[in-house]
Design a protein around this nucleic acid. Structure first.
Length: 518
DNA sequence: GCGCCTTTGAAGTTT
DNA sequence: AAACTTCAAAGGCGC
């Protein structure tokens, strides 16, 4: 299990996975990061290459093409880390953000929040604070409720981001930015707002890449007003939201609420989960627009699903209504989800594959092939994500979303024959879900273990000592075993289903990690 | 139009 | 405590 909470209670900035890794004698983080990144690229590349033996030639060019790109990003990342470190120091000084010191998260420098509503946009370096930003997956109750739960918003309002993702410049965190926000006026960020992030390619200072900003959560109104849209380049054309913000509804309140209810609470030095200020609009606490907030319209179980709204107080209100009004607060994304968001576009671009199921298989493999450091990065992000989420929604519980999906049936025991008889869920056990021809590698068994993770990665992971270079050199196309053999992310890594499946991993046909293109 | 598919991980519930 | 279940994202596909 992931050490979510570093040390009892203080998971804020606690040493978590990352540190553990180091303890294991990992190489210098930096180095490993580079190496792993390279390896990742290699894998990606190789996977692509494998995908069609035909295109083998492209790999080289591709590789040379890419590597240079990544490094700068890594550097960037390192820089960010430094900023985070500073942020952490500040926070520990009494800053509210003590907790969510997103070590792995890009921080956005904004005026000291304890002094939230800066009248003007001037940010004094001395008073500035790093604020992580997350752009909301906001879907507010109301109009959104009319839509499909899964895609509560029209395409243009969708919070899906891939659309704007730049395949060629994918920062490790890029995909995290799923939200766009019209509230941000694209523009040149004040220099003080952009932590000297240089464009990897040009070397020219650039606006922090969205990925460099904590993407999910809303920023204070004040800050919002002052901070140029970090996602400028990827901000959807005017009027496009990532979230379905009801026309008259939250549009305006959104930013304000976001800050008032959420950020301010976070900002408050006396932050207390239960002190979250209620929005002036009388919205329920959970109604606070947030990236994670989605239309409550989410398929709610017609009945019987009146799970405790008590969680959020106002028990007096009729359960039904209450439910209806309550926005759907999504679960914070876990490490893998974050990774998926980031990499999906890339994979799609590379593989010309669109089916998520297939893509996810690939992503799953790649995930396993990631070095610990890289994974740690995501675990860290996820951890921060959860922290922030919990701060924003103190009363929220994953349970709140239970039953809202209306379905969730699959999941039958892989091996219980009898069950299969009556189980409604027809999960394809051993058949890799690769649409039609698109078989990439042959994932074999189902229950997650069908994919053979590259023997190498696991080895690399297992033995940090093993030169990553070697690994990268091998550039084994992800073979399929989902579970990197005994690559226990053991203690320091969040337990992953990737326990060991050593046996399975044995066979690893160096094959395509990408499903065959059509 | 809705649910499934697929992946991993977190957190909930059940045993 | 372990096992099991649900949900988070994504988008094509089938009914």
């Amino acid at each position: 299990m992931p050490q979510l909470n570093g040390g009892g209670g203080d998971d804020l900035g606690a040493n978590d996975e990352l540190i553990s890794f180091k303890d294991e004698g990992e190489q210098e983080e930096k180095i490993s990061a580079n190496v792993s990144s390279e390896r990742d690229l290699d894998e990606v590349k190789s996977s692509l290459v494998n995908e069609s033996e035909n295109n083998s030639s492209s790999s080289d060019s591709e590789q040379t093409d890419r590597r240079p790109r990544l490094r700068p990003e890594l550097e960037s990342y390192e820089k960010q880390r430094e900023y985070f470190a500073e942020a952490l120091r500040r926070q520990q000084d009494g800053g509210f953000f003590k907790g969510p010191t997103y070590a792995g998260y890009p921080f956005l420098m904004i005026p000291d929040i304890t002094n939230p509503y800066l009248s003007n946009g001037s940010l004094s370096p001395s008073t500035r604070t790093y604020l992580q930003m997350k752009w909301p997956l906001l879907e507010v109750p109301g109009t959104a409720a009319l839509k499909d739960s899964r895609s509560p918003t029209p395409g243009h309002l969708s919070n899906k981001v891939p659309v704007v993702q730049h395949p060629h410049h994918v920062h490790p965190l890029t995909p995290l930015i799923t939200y766009s926000n019209e509230h941000f006026s694209p523009g040149t960020p004040p220099s003080h707002l952009s932590p000297e992030i240089l464009d990897p390619k040009t070397g020219i200072p650039r606006t922090p890449h969205p990925s460099e900003l904590s993407p999910y959560y809303p920023l204070s109104p004040g800050a919002v007003g002052q901070i140029p849209h970090p996602l400028g380049w990827l901000v959807p054309q005017q009027g496009q939201h990532m979230y379905s913000i009801p026309p008259g509804g939250f549009r305006h309140p959104y930013p304000a609420l976001a800050m008032n209810a959420s950020m301010s609470s976070l900002v408050s030095s006396r932050f207390s989960p239960h002190m979250v200020p209620h929005p002036p609009h009388g919205l329920h606490q959970t109604s606070i627009p947030h990236p994670a907030i989605v239309s409550h319209a989410i398929k709610q179980e017609p009945s019987g699903d009146n799970f405790g709204n008590s969680t959020h107080g106002s028990p007096s209100v009729p359960v039904k209504k209450e439910e209806e009004k309550r926005p759907h607060i999504k679960k914070p994304l876990n490490a893998f989800m974050l990774y998926m968001k980031e990499m999906r576009a890339k994979v799609v671009a590379e593989c010309t594959l669109k089916e998520s199921a297939a893509i996810n298989q690939i992503l799953g493999r790649r995930w396993h092939s990631l070095s610990r450091e890289e994974q740690a990065k995501y675990y860290e992000l996820a951890r921060k994500e959860r922290q922030l989420h919990s701060q924003l929604y103190p009363g929220w519980s994953a349970r709140d979303n239970y039953g809202k999906r209306k379905k969730r049936k699959r999941d039958n025991k892989p091996d219980s024959p009898q069950e299969s008889n009556f189980s409604p869920q027809l999960k394809k056990q051993c058949v890799p879900y690769l649409p039609s021809e698109k078989m990439c590698d042959s994932p074999t068994s189902s229950h997650g273990s069908m994919l053979d993770s590259p023997a190498t990665p696991s080895a690399a992971l297992a033995s940090p000592a093993a030169p990553a270079a070697t690994h990268s050199e091998q550039a084994q196309p992800l073979s399929l075993t989902t579970k990197p053999e005994g690559m226990e992310k053991s203690s320091d890594m969040p337990s992953s289903s990737s326990e060991n499946e050593e046996s399975a991993s044995t066979f690893a046909p160096p094959s395509n990690s990408c499903p065959r293109q059509l």
